[in-house]
Design a protein around this nucleic acid. Structure first.
Lengths: 347, 347
DNA sequence: CTGAAAGCGCTTACAG
DNA sequence: CTGAAAGCGCTTACAG
């Protein structure tokens, strides 16, 4: 056994050829061993020994060049650290891992240009499929890829103008239920905080709010609807307007957890108690005083379902494009059950 | 211009050769165009037209096979959705993206075997480097790779028995400061909740707790230290023990935000007020009543620094292995400033 | 059970 | 400025 490579570890990785040479077998035999195909026991151990000795690791990139599949999928989210989206990512990752694939993940920061760059980078790497949590934008550039068979699943928001697999919450129904809940507790003047009017979800959630009011024969008033800005300071100002004047709101509904939290801060700053129901659950919602009632989705499950659907497509499922609608769940913790008479300026 | 591929979009992607044939140029010329090298303007537009027409996308995997680098790095965390780790991931991703690389991410679920599988999968894909948030375990299997030049940066916890780049918080100092803060507010009996005695960070944080007590000439009592389990029910039982008897604790320190939250729930359940300082900040800590005082790290920055260090290594920096120690910050919000006389059974 | 040849889609040297 | 040949590290077909 020659010992010539002791001095400095090779900076170039050994290849199958090196293993073959060392084991005194053909290249193809090494390939067989690496891929778990049958070889003669003596051959097997010789190859194994060479692999061990050389510190050989198969280059999956080279393998996939010939094989076609890269066993990887891409995930684009707005922000990997945003609680909701990090749960989606975890859901996608779990399924991906269980399928023996690898997840490539990137944050678009809700910038459509950046999102496109990321998607194209993933496509250039020949991911087997894509899961996208998008802010919208134009997806025409993807049409050739979709037609070419690239599976694509959207989460939380459907792509504008594209017939594609989508997993999303029943936004209208969820928000309608939340606002109806407030109305059932005696509220007639309910404010609404939505952000980004161009986003699909918020359009839908706004509709749920309006539907609930109409069902209770309450007139929808634009002055009680704020969709101007997700910034805390803007939320505070908007809330101040809603609670001042002759007909102050006694309750608010918020279209996502970021807005819910901003509204809570605003209520505290303004020292004004209101009933509140927020879309999306968030950690510690139950530890606040009162606990915060929410219309909850299950983002972990959304991510997992999206990935499962993707892998079904990869396995050959060519059923028509699906829109999986996940039901939301109203969780009562106190803030949504506050009665109008308990609302108003504090102390 | 031949039009033969209208019927069904090709399921096989066009290659550089197809583009070359269509544009009537050599393969290498297409390569030049794709890589932004200079070609004659007329040639350029012919190639561009062919690319557009065929819907050609360069196969990065094939390119990297020849080039060597895959322009990708791997990230292993315990759980992608865990708030602290999702921020680390976001920090890593931001830097990765800015470097024109792609991030592959996977969750080990704090299982060393799974972590190893993930790491080996990343290595087989020839990532340029790795960022690992590890639970510990044996890293001998990585020694050949490290010696072979594979850059590797650990975050939050150094790898046992490995001289490797690491970015971590100054745990001892941080916890010492937090506990000293409690002592400065009059507490003499301070409980401690740590989990997973085998984890590096918790060992260090425990030491910070002990150091603070000793500095105040307070005897460290094992009965006030709970490291048995991170389960809420176990925390509650442990807390119950600590607050009963003749010398109940008036304050507690917790080694991470999960424990902090579990302790808060336990305090509520037991209807017993205590001063509390937790390691790691968490969302809404300021909205609770009282606000929760914490020893805060900056996980986003940790992730970004880890990735930056990794890319410096990739750029050729061969300085000795670094241990970057990030200072923590004590944030006072009320819970840590509660005086002993205000603690005890509620109401 | 084993292996030599061809090929995956690019880039790297080279030569014109 | 352009292109033919060789090669990256594997797998795929074939042949023994």
């Amino acid at each position: 056994m020659p010992r010539g490579d002791t001095e400095r570890e090779q900076r170039v990785r050994p290849t199958m050829n090196d293993v073959a040479a060392r084991a005194g077998v053909g290249l193809k035999t090494v390939s067989r061993v690496v891929n778990g195909e049958t070889v003669r026991p003596a051959t097997l151990s010789a190859v194994l020994e060479a692999i061990e000795n050389l510190g050989y690791r198969r280059n999956d990139g080279a393998a996939s060049l010939r094989q076609g599949s890269t066993s990887s999928i891409g995930l684009v989210v707005g922000e990997l650290s945003e609680p909701f989206q990090s749960l989606v990512a975890q859901g996608v990752e779990t399924v991906t891992q269980s399928q023996g694939s690898i997840l490539m993940a990137a944050s678009s920061r809700d910038d459509p240009d950046r999102e496109r760059q990321i998607v194209e980078a993933f496509l250039a790497r020949r991911v087997d499929g894509l899961v996208v949590v998008t802010m919208g934008g134009d997806y025409d550039y993807l049409i050739p890829d979709i037609r070419g068979g690239m599976p694509l699943v959207f989460v939380d928001r459907p792509p504008p103008g594209l017939d594609a697999d989508t997993v999303l919450a029943d936004n209208v129904r969820g928000m309608r239920e939340g606002v109806s809940h407030l109305i059932a507790h005696g509220h007639r003047r309910v404010g609404y905080f939505g952000d980004r009017p161009f986003a699909f979800t918020h359009f839908e959630r706004l509709r749920g709010y309006q539907d609930a009011l109409r069902a209770a024969s309450i007139t929808v008033q634009d002055s009680l609807i704020d969709m101007s800005s997700p910034e805390p300071a803007a939320i505070r100002d908007a809330l101040r307007r809603m609670v001042s004047g002759r007909h102050p709101v006694t309750a608010v509904a918020t279209a996502n957890s970021r807005l819910t939290i901003a509204a809570l801060r605003a209520m505290r700053e303004l020292r004004h108690d209101l009933a509140i129901v927020g879309f999306d659950d968030f950690e510690l919602a139950d530890l606040l005083e009162p606990g915060i009632s929410v219309v909850a989705q299950d983002p972990l499950s959304s991510g997992a379902q999206a990935a499962s659907l993707l892998f079904r497509r990869l396995a050959g499922d060519d059923a028509p494009m699906q829109r999986i609608l996940l039901q939301t769940k109203l969780i009562q913790r106190g803030s949504g059950e506050r009665r109008p008479e308990d609302c108003g300026p504090r102390g």
